[in-house]
Every structure is written in structure tokens, then in C-alpha cells.
Nucleic acid binder design. Sequence first.
DNA 1: CAACCTGTTCGCCA
DNA 2: ATGGCGAACAGGTT
Length: 268
Amino acid sequence: MPELAEVEYHRKHWDQGLGRKVLGVELHATKRIFRGADTDALVGELTGAKLLRSEARGKQLMFVFSGGSWLGIHLGMTGKMHAEPSDFTPGKHDHLVLRQKDIALVFSDSRLFGRVRYDQAKQPPKWWSDIGPALVSPEFTAKVCRERLERRPRAPVKAALLDQKLFPGVGNWMADEILWQARIHPATPSAALSAAQQKSIWQKTREICRTALRTIGRDWGDPPDDWLIHVRWRKKGDCPRHGTPLKHATIAGRTTAWCPRCQPRAKG
DNA sequence: CAACCTGTTCGCCA
DNA sequence: ATGGCGAACAGGTT
């Protein structure tokens, strides 16, 4: 589920807890999502701390608490944030529960590919501050986009788009959407892209991120009807432009859908 | 029952 | 050094 806009959607589910103290913490410390995290420190230091603010960067979430506590969450494939009434009883997949007055903030993840990080420091942790500028920010210029594509010159362009260091927040459906809207075959090596194609990827990336944030990210609303996302998972999906049956293959290790007519294979 | 999955990381290999 | 490939992670869904 979670790419950039879905992550933003989930972030807001803990907004109900802003400005409130954490009265107690319950967690499943042995679960894989806590790998590398000091869960004793997390419980000890978050108890009594106040939730000050939160932010999403790419697929990463950060919840900032008083006392210099930084709670980082990655949703993996099946992670979810939700707020529950105070009589909430955690189920098997509710791995982290922050109890506050009248509510419980919950992180659930059935498949356990997500990750919880915890740091106590004056400054944000390095893994967080190292995340590049948002794809919707003015710093993500056409030049920056081009340089990032050129960092993986021989990889299929889809692999570059999926690289979180280069395009933070882009996941499998967004990469397919960008390439379909830009009319570029997903297996095209980045180095083989024309200047016009590079620019098109930049434009579509920004546009798709913005629109996804305004729809999915706002209230799980539907993206525009003519987007690929609505048909890409159907085994018999057709191109929204003219009904040509979509092709499917594994590219860059991921199931990929594209239109053979709009996105002709790069020659060579 | 088998296949498949909107993510990340690792080892192996060309 | 680069990058394709498959596996692993763990559980739900089709």
C-alpha cells in the first residue's frame, strides 16, 4: 500500500494525539519491525513525553516528542497508523500502542516489513536528515531530476525511479504511472533517455506526486479517472488512452505494467 | 493449494 | 563497479 501519498495519509491519523502526553507505551519488542531499535529506551523515554509534530519524507515518517525523542516509522508493505478509543485492546498485529488521555495511537503491520526507529538527541537522526528534497519541492528541479536519472545510467529507468535515494516516495505503482504518462518504456536504460524524455519524467513525477497528495494523501480520494493506476493490476487491463491491452513483466525486480503502443520499447 | 503482493536488503553472479 | 536475479522477511488475499 504505502507510497508517498499513502504514507502522508497515514501520518495524519496520529494528529489527534498532537500536544498530548504519552501516558504509557505497549509494544511487541521481539517483532522484526523493531530490529535495531532500543525498545527499552523507547518505552522509558516516550512515557511522559508530549507529541509535538510529525512529518513524512518519501516513505518515511517521523514523530517528534518533547525531550528530544524521535520516533521514525516505515510502513513497509502493510503498515498502518490509526487512532483508537482509550478502551482499545491491541490485536495480534498492533505492535506499537501509545496511550494518551482518551485515545490510543496505534501502529499495525501484519506482514512486518515495516520498521520502527527510535532516537534520543537534540538533532534529528542522520537517516532522516539525509533524505533528499521532496519531489514536490522547488529544489527538485529539472536539473536535479536529470542528475538523479544519470546516477543509474545503465539501469532500467524504472529501477532509478524506485531508488529511494534518488526519488524518495516513489513506489511500484507511481513508477509505472510516471513512465506511462511520460510514454517511456520502463526497461529503457536511463542513459538512453533523450533530453525531452528526461524533462517529461521530471514534469510527470511532480504532477503525479502533487495530484496523489491532493487525492489519496488528503482523504484516500480517487486519483484522476484516466490514470493507469485504476487498471494496472487487472490481468486484463487496457490502456486508458486507447484500450490497447497492457503488457506485464518483471522489470527491476518488480511487477511492471505498461502500454506497448504508448511506451514502445527503446531500440537497441 | 499455489501464486502473488504498492518494500527493503542481502548474497551471488556476469 | 554495476546491476540483474532470486531469496528472505511473514502473513493475507486471490
